[in-house]
Design a protein around this nucleic acid. Sequence first.
DNA 1: GACGCTTGCTACTAAAAAAGTAGCGAGGTA
DNA 2: TACCTCGCTACTTTTTTAGTAGCAAGCGTC
Lengths: 111, 111
Amino acid sequence: MALPTPGLPVRGSATGKPIMALLDLLGRTWSLAVIWQLNQGPATFRELQKRCEKISPSLLNKRLKELKSLQLIDIQEQGYGLTQQGQSLFKIIAPLGLWSDQWALHLQTDN
Amino acid sequence: MALPTPGLPVRGSATGKPIMALLDLLGRTWSLAVIWQLNQGPATFRELQKRCEKISPSLLNKRLKELKSLQLIDIQEQGYGLTQQGQSLFKIIAPLGLWSDQWALHLQTDN
DNA sequence: GACGCTTGCTACTAAAAAAGTAGCGAGGTA
DNA sequence: TACCTCGCTACTTTTTTAGTAGCAAGCGTC
């Protein structure tokens, strides 16, 4: 699938509204998880494979290329890591950690 | 695919850590977009189809069932709408709107 | 300089998910 | 009765992801 590039047609928007490009990108399998894992710190390819349990190398590589192209990650001394942009994106989604715990609790008590 | 239920094995976590269940859910095609669109207000099935350009009815239905099961949306008077939980989740991701605009700008000026 | 080990991948096939399209049954309206 | 719209289901094709094997390059050892 093509890179979800702002300005070009993407899933959910023929005109490529940035938010839709972003949601398209983040909506791809493992995208969010890779960003989440990289926030723990840079990692080599194989290390990242371990952090993401069970991701296949081909898909990991594909995602890494996408995220690299869209400048959310890049290659650093210790391997792949979040760029400034990637970090600022992570700051937004970081609260999902706590939120998900409450959500899990809610789902439990409520069924 | 099975519902990404906290506590059960999900993509990225054999133990079903809530955050991983959430990232699995949100990482599915159109999930994030549906939530995003529903924040504009409740919508009937067909209305939602229009808001999400080009989503197929079968997939929309599948996503709606998932989101309903996980209590992020429910059926209201005017159609599908975000639950309290759904709204609190949206509040977290809402800043993605502005962020994506800056991201788009950055990608433009920088290539 | 041949050895064994790790790393970053590529290549390939099988399985699963998503796209795309037709249309049904229920309900309202005229 | 005829004609809408609505919420979907059923089905086929296309695309994505999973899963697995293994290669080429770089290191350290002896």
